[in-house]
Design a protein around this nucleic acid. Structure first.
Lengths: 274, 274
DNA sequence: TAGTGGTCTAGACCACCGT
DNA sequence: CGGTGGTCTAGACCACTAA
């Protein structure tokens, strides 16, 4: 290494001298460069990124600095480290991160358990829960203003709407309304959804190059209106758990708005405060 | 340093030689020692722990190893680092970690905002929300079996029950039933609760030496029964958000079981999936 | 055996804080 | 100014994986 971190130190000195914005430490700059590689698709979900020593050479920093950058990516679940093998881009197809966004669980794990590891058709399962999905509707339309606002679109831009029913043990459990930006999800049809076996986010990642990174949720208790009561086979006015979710991809760009109405008679939403 | 990490290396070699349990890396051993110091009260909430160099000398490891141990404690919110000052034991009295466990937020931040920084009597506020607490009941009794099971007590052991009503803008919003192990919370009375101004967990930490570290929650939507409907001033049968919480202290010991019934007409439970 | 991530060390320098 | 945490480096060795 002929010029170890000359750029970084220059930046740092720069920041001290100027009154301008303080510069990020080297490992954060490296981290952001790596995020750029992930975002641009240079390394695709499931693939490995270059080794730490290679990245250190490429960016002309020490291995320790690259290591700290990757530590942050791993903490954010953008990559997964595997000792002896390498560092891999996280994927919703992997079991490890499959159910990271699924918080609904059966009250009694035993009562709702299927065969260990079993999955229903279109199934998203986890924690001994078997869930089957039925797509009720999938159409494209112009964004209503509230949807446009949440997704950061202009009103009237094309969006896709998926309505689906999740069932556990044959009982309707969750009714989802899912809004997606039309531009990102060209070619999304009910047939395509029916043909896909696996988590929805794995489909989005694989078929549309859109990877959900994190999500913000708002929960409320609401009374079932007539339509939803009928679909979920509960009395009108029954309490439902409304889970509103905005999913974000790289750079915190919103790419999904979802409203789920959950029957919580035999299930609950689990959360850990840490 | 005369014998740098002789213990650690011996352990490591040991583990490799034996078929027994693998030994934790040095920094985890150090971390656990530090947790022991926190748990035993060697360093109290708000106080600073020894500096990294001092700890490195004490445990005869490098500063980098101590640093990594403290990194984990900081990630778990057990300590807070402050550049140039030191590392401090986290406290519920500090604004930083005041509202870490409060997930209920007004739907429209503007609508419910009081004076910036204002707090109601008994208030737990945050995110522009003002909440006032009214203790309805505080008595001691023998643990019902379900409470005993959750708190890890034997049935019939003494427990304390607090019932309180949280109000926002004069509107009843949350009805809490809080169960505590009697042994830990000797001397807890309604008068003591009324006299305390600040978060409940700060009281527990300051007056009873019990610090809540993390919590597990289960959420459901339920219909308001007659009593709760009256107390919360909503129609009987209205949907309420039921938040069931088990709080844990060091070593994941359960020390609180709480059931909160929330009116979510103007508020929601916020969560981030990361 | 070669290559990867994981641990540990030692030392330099920086940014920040209170005195 | 001295002391604290924060960054960065360089190099050694370990643990794991795959060929």
């Amino acid at each position: 290494m002929s010029e170890p971190s000359s750029r970084a130190r220059a930046d740092s000195a720069h920041a001290a001298a100027e009154a301008g914005p303080t510069f990020a430490p080297l490992y954060r700059q490296i981290r952001d460069l790596l995020v750029g590689g992930l975002q641009s698709g240079e390394w695709k979900p499931g693939e490995s990124i270059p080794s730490e020593v290679e990245l250190a050479a490429r960016y002309r920093v020490s291995q320790g600095t690259v290591r700290k950058a990757i530590d942050e990516l791993a903490a954010a679940h953008l990559v997964v480290r595997r000792q002896g093998r390498g560092t891999f881009v996280a994927s919703h197809r992997e079991v490890r991160s499959q159910f990271r966004f699924l918080r609904l669980r059966p009250d009694d794990p035993e009562a709702d358990a299927g065969e260990p590891g079993e999955q229903g058709a279109q199934g998203e399962s986890g924690h001994g829960m078997v869930m089957t999905s039925r797509v009720l509707e999938c159409r494209r339309l112009r964004a209503p203003s509230d949807v446009a606002r949440v997704l950061g679109l202009r009103g009237g831009e094309p969006v896709a709407l998926i309505r689906r029913l999740l069932e556990t043990e044959g009982r309707p459990t969750v009714l989802d309304d899912i809004w997606l930006p039309g531009a990102r999800f060209r070619g999304l049809t009910a047939e395509r959804l029916d043909a896909w076996h696996g988590p929805l986010y794995a489909l989005f990642e694989t078929e549309f190059g859109t990877r959900m990174i994190r999500a913000l949720e708002r929960l409320k208790a609401v009374a079932a209106d007539r339509d939803r009561a009928r679909t979920l086979q509960v009395p009108e006015g029954s309490p439902l758990l409304l889970v509103e979710r905005v999913s974000l991809t790289y750079a915190d760009q919103p790419v999904e708005w979802r409203r789920g109405y959950c029957v919580t008679g035999r299930h609950h939403y689990f959360n850990e405060l840490a």
